[in-house]
Nucleic acid binder design. Structure first.
Lengths: 159, 159
DNA sequence: TCGCGATAGTTAATGTGTCAACCTGGTTGG
DNA sequence: CCAACCAGGTTGACACATTAACTATCGCGA
């Protein structure tokens, strides 16, 4: 039963600052994407990875690894995107268990229209508000935090 | 038709660093809260605000303003929390339209047990990984970004 | 080559979040 | 005073995310 070390005022402010900034950013960007381009952030990410892949097609498990999504989440989401005609799903020729997800022409049109808008939004609300030093600082901060999270995850897996 | 200013490599890294850090942090903390205390992050936030309020009770619109939640989100969430016995809902005595949300003893027990755990988690994965300077930097970054977001929101409302 | 664990993917149930439509009760200007 | 608007809140329909359970195939070691 050790003493609780609550956050002091500055720690509190830093933590809240991060959380509320992030909430505001993701909400804003998601809204922009939906209204200007008709795709959600998850849609955008799926389409972006498909677009960058050799043939505009990927196995779900590859897509899942790139996005760090669980397989069931991916399955559900791809199902919805398929209904809207953004991607298509076929059985894999070389692995009878598997499938292949391909971007459709309609999906390609949407993402190529959305990408410049999205880049401009990110620049407007984030990049252009900060100094070079602050961007560097964020990279360092992210690295440290991710490292700690990874360590905890490993620890949990092996105990 | 102006030129698209894509993000350069460092800008890209900073943006990705922020996003992936935040995804990792929120996922980790939400999992910790659920497993150790049986409440989700949104549950925790609702209970925390109720706990800090004078009588452990708030009007939904006040709660919504504190959390920056839309009224329908709040209504849905409070409904679920009520089913689980964490809060109760009554009609407001002074405004016949309105309601009052109160924390129950069970809700109070849960949040008071969860809070120290949560503070320790935040310290572990976030605060303790960073320098004083980095925390200060984050406060400044958050302020700038929020300011820009607020400006855009005002602009949208008045056009 | 056979049997079995690992891999690929789907589905059902539930919790969470958004939008639009709606109801009801307050408020205010003519 | 009352009609019209406004504010507080709920509901229904849908999108999104996680967990657990399930099917089917693959591939490897005995």
């Amino acid at each position: 039963m050790t003493e609780v070390r609550w956050l002091d005022d500055e720690e509190q402010r830093a933590w809240r600052s991060l959380i509320t900034m992030q909430d505001g950013l993701t909400e804003f960007l998601d809204r922009e994407l939906r209204h200007r381009s008709g795709v959600s952030t998850p849609d955008y990410e799926v389409l972006a990875h498909l677009l960058e892949s050799p043939e505009g097609r990927l196995r779900p498990f590859e897509l899942g690894r790139l996005l760090r999504w669980e397989k069931s989440r991916l399955s559900q989401h791809v199902g919805r995107m398929q209904k809207r005609g953004l991607v298509s799903r076929d059985r894999c020729a070389t692995d009878q268990r598997g499938a292949v997800v391909s971007i459709t022409p309609r999906g390609r049109d949407l993402i190529t229209a959305a990408a410049p808008q999205h880049a401009a939004s990110v620049r407007d609300v984030f990049i252009d508000q900060l100094t070079k030093a602050e961007l560097k600082s964020l990279i360092a901060i992210g690295d440290k935090v991710r490292k700690r999270l990874a360590a905890l995850e490993n620890q949990a897996r092996t105990e």
